[in-house]
């Protein structure tokens, strides 16, 4: 069964674009990454999946149920971590966590205590005294304590220190191994690459790629660096050309033979041809130009 399935999901805010014709399918048990620049529509997608927003057209199913018709039932099995977790002023951390559990009509005291200990969260503090990172931890416990079948995380690591990030992802991996579906929205690519099996990329409200992380990262583009006198005018398929003190570096996605014949005619001292960084690949998805050749 699909944990998340959207069909031509579209959301406009008045005339402003949110998301357009989004077809997304996440299998149950997957660790799924959702990548895109700011304003691409990641949060709009998530908020529609949670029933906070009504789609303009199209449909969304979460855990096999329509989010519009069975919002309340769906939310029972979902844990959501917002990118900016805000809680009621004046409440203590433990009161917020208890309130969250009470609203779910579950008693998850044991799990709550375990999570608070692992994340080193002081539950006696008042929420308005907390730093951004500590507020995030409260959000994490709220999202995880009832052991949901689906976790929807919107930029979960912002504000967390590296040690906490590691602990957090360890918890997520454990949950994933015991069957929980994780939907991770982020623009930190290394996070996606390390943890997710599949990922989708969204840009300007449209889904532009959805594949395994390996396949997304694998392209026939190479990063070429040459030292020496170089005239590259003869090459057509080059991008991102950087020249500095007698060396040139560029992304090449054309025929290898052509590259070599051009380079062979030049006075070159040194040459490296390497796989591009993941960042470079995604950067290309982000900016205009569409898919990779």
């Amino acid at each position: 069964m699909e944990a998340i399935k959207t069909t031509k999901l579209t959301k406009y805010y008045g005339k402003a674009r949110g998301i357009i014709d989004l077809d997304l399918a996440v299998e149950e048990g997957e660790f799924f990454g959702f990548i895109g620049p700011n304003g691409a529509g990641k949060s709009t997608t998530i908020r529609t999946l949670l029933g906070l927003l009504n789609p303009s057209s199209g449909s969304a199913e979460v855990l096999g149920k329509s989010i519009i018709g069975s919002r309340t039932e769906v939310l029972k099995d979902v844990g959501y971590l917002p990118s900016e977790a805000v809680f009621y002023q004046g409440m203590r951390v433990k009161e917020v966590l208890k309130l969250s559990a009470d609203l779910r009509k579950t008693d998850c005291k044991k799990e709550r205590e375990k999570l608070c200990e692992r994340l080193q969260l002081d539950t006696n503090k008042r929420v308005e005294e907390l730093s951004f990172g500590n507020r995030k931890k409260v959000g994490i416990v709220c999202a995880l304590q009832h052991q949901p079948r689906l976790l929807i995380l919107d930029e979960p690591t912002s504000g967390l220190d590296p040690l906490m990030q590691r602990e957090f992802f360890e918890i997520l991996q454990e949950r994933n191994q015991s069957g929980t579906t994780v939907f991770l929205s982020s623009h930190i690519l290394s996070e996606i690459q390390r943890n997710c099996t599949r990922a989708a990329i969204i840009r300007e409200g449209r889904l532009i790629a959805c594949d395994s992380v390996e396949a997304l990262a694998k392209t026939n583009t190479k990063r070429v660096t040459v030292h020496g006198v170089v005239d590259l005018k003869a090459l057509s398929d080059i991008r991102d050309l950087q020249t500095a003190e007698g060396s040139s570096s560029f992304l090449y996605s054309g025929e290898m033979k052509e590259l070599l014949s051009v380079l062979a005619a030049l006075d070159i001292r040194d040459l490296t041809i390497a796989e591009p960084d993941l960042e470079e690949i995604f950067m290309h998805y982000y900016t205009d130009g569409g898919d990779l050749a």
């Binding site: 906070l52 959501y80 805000v86 809680f87 969250s100």
Partner: peptide
């Protein structure tokens, strides 16, 4: 966002 993402 907190309140309305609970199953109520």
């Amino acid at each position: 966002e907190f309140l309305l993402t609970h199953p109520v």
